[in-house]
Simulated scan of single mutants.
Amino acid sequence: MGVVEIGAARRATFIDVAVVRTPASMELSQRLLTIGSGIEELIDQHKPDAIALERVFAQHNVSTVMGIAQISGVAFFLAAQRGIPVGLHTPTEVKAAVTGYGGAEKDQVGAMVAKILRLASPPKPADAADALALAICHGWRGTPLSAPRVAGDTNLTPAQAAWRAAEQRSRSS
């Protein structure tokens, strides 16, 4: 679970990140309770304006899809209780948002997350970097990059600039 603040000039600032792990041997209901409690704690601590979740639409590993769906259901429930809007983004969208390439590798995503958030090194474990990338993606997509620029919006990352250019090209086609 990653928490970032997105400024008016699309400057992302690191706030917090947490990875909740449970043993595979733990009963499913207890695993969901533990993960849900971790999500709830982060939501209540930071009171986000929006929550972003991974949208998995194609996956060969059914247990991975089921796990993500179950955890997403818990997160949706917690967000709905608090009136927080939820956005869904595919892994490809997230990778494209932070690296400029939807097929980027995990280490590339981690490196760009560190650069975007001005961190000394990529967040560890890789799940932490993925959560922050998802939060950055959602923050940047809240207002299309092709929207009129705001004062001070001259410091786009290479990924943001590539995204803006692609959006502009698609609109002119």
Rank of each mutant, 00 (worst) to 15 (best):
I35G: 06
I35W: 01
G36P: 08
S37I: 08
G38N: 07
I39T: 11
I39V: 15
E40V: 01
E40T: 11
E41C: 15
D44N: 15
Q45W: 12
Q45D: 13
Q45N: 11
H46C: 13
H46E: 10
P48T: 08
R55C: 03
R55I: 01
R55K: 14
V56N: 05
F57N: 14
F57K: 08
F57S: 13
F57A: 10
A58M: 12
A58Q: 12
Q59P: 04
Q59Y: 06
N61E: 09
S63R: 12
T64N: 12
T64K: 02
V65C: 04
M66C: 05
G67I: 06
I68P: 02
Q70S: 05
S72A: 15
A75V: 08
A75R: 01
A75H: 04
F76Q: 14
A79C: 08
A80Y: 07
R82N: 08
G83Q: 09
I84V: 14
H89W: 05
H89S: 07
T90L: 05
T90Q: 02
T92V: 12
E93K: 10
A97P: 01
A97F: 06
T99L: 07
G102L: 07
G102S: 04
A104N: 04
E105A: 12
E105N: 05
K106D: 07
K106L: 06
K106I: 08
K106R: 11
D107N: 15
D107Y: 14
D107K: 14
D107I: 07
Q108R: 15
M112K: 01
V113P: 00
K115L: 12
I116P: 00
L117A: 04
R118P: 02
A120L: 13
A120D: 12
S121F: 12
P122S: 11
P123Q: 07
K124V: 11
P125Q: 11
A126I: 12
D127F: 10
D127G: 03
D127T: 09
A128W: 05
A129V: 11
A129C: 08
A129I: 08
A131S: 15
A131Y: 00
L134I: 09
L134N: 06
I136A: 01
I136T: 05
C137S: 02
H138Q: 08
G139L: 03
W140N: 09
W140S: 01
R141S: 08
T143M: 10
P144R: 12
S146Q: 09
A147C: 10
